[in-house]
Amino acid sequence: MDDMTKMTFEDAMTELETIVRQLEEGKSRLEDSIALYERGVALRKHCETRLREARLRVEKIALGENGQPIGTQPLDGVEES
């Protein structure tokens, strides 16, 4: 399941939808169905975690003398909502 942490939300959700369709078709063998279901549950959890983590974080790029970005700093005035 390590591979999943790197998965994008969209990829995870697309796979979840595919699994749901496969299960609903009911053509898989029982063992496969259980494995699919477990994978689906993990994918769902991954997606939900991603969503729960979502919060607005606003930063401003700080530019150095030469105009190159040297870091970030909070954006005054508009950061929280």
Binding site: F9, M13, L16, E17, I19, V20, L23, E24, G26, S28, L30, S33, I34, Y37, G40, V41, R44, C47, E48, L51, A54
Partner: peptide, 22 residues
């Protein structure tokens, strides 16, 4: 995001139903 969450919940439920049916 609310739509995504609902979509996820829906898929989870459908998955459970399908497995139960199997």
């Amino acid at each position: 995001m609310v739509d995504l969450a609902a979509h996820l919940t829906d898929n989870g439920a459908r998955m459970a139903r399908a497995l139960h049916k199997t």
